[in-house]
Amino acid sequence: MTLTQAKGHFYKQYLKLFKAAGEWEFILVYPLVHLFSMGFLSAFVGGEDSARVALTYMFVGAFSWNFYVLAQKGITYGILHEIWSDSVKHLATAPAGIIDFIIGNGAYSLLSGLMAWLLMYLCAKIFFAFDIFAGGPVIVLGLIGLWLYGMAEGLIVNAIMLLKGPEYMSITWIITGIVMVTSAVYYPLSILPEPIRTAASILPTTHAIESIRQAILGGNPIAPGINAVVLGVAYLLVASFVFSKSLTRSKQNGTILRL
């Protein structure tokens, strides 16, 4: 593992950003679509005060959601671009390891997530007088939790694609769908029925979003923030292991040749 090798992965993603128009969808289009639809929705529901709280819930949800999706996408597209261009074998025979892959693509995940955040921050501020940074620097904990978990999920999707083929990319949408409902992205955890609430408690996203929300609403963001980071690290470690095993398996049974 070296910095240059990690940089190689980042370099590829960075170039793709300026070459593949589709890249901007995730950074420009979806975040703003979320932001504006949530903004108008919360203006529509409730009176003045409760509308403000609803807006916070929905905006924290939209900000967090897009950050996590971009973290996940950075890792998944690290492989997917290669599969689409039929160049996986170059990657699979290069001496850059899995850690280089995670660091390089993870750095790009972070960059793209922050770019989306900047854009959303400006629009939320200008059009809805909402400041995501009102809670102070403590929201970094939640962001790290989202980032780590997003990368972990990306690695799991990669592991599946290495063994089953790129069609399985669509698994992503199933997982993100489940995560969206379960981790109480747009509403308080207490609204969820009991069994789902238990499932929610083991997802880093639940804690991360709760932490960012608490920071803005003046509650306690530290405890959920730390939970999010610790869980995020655990998920990432497990996912890295799974990804590495799946790469070995793919080289053993030859599926790597057919990607």
Partner: peptide, 16 residues
């Protein structure tokens, strides 16, 4: 969508 220089640069980095 990469040119020769970009392709070679990318792999040169992966080879450290």
């Amino acid at each position: 969508d990469f040119n020769a220089i970009e392709i070679l640069n990318y792999y040169a980095m992966l080879y450290d």
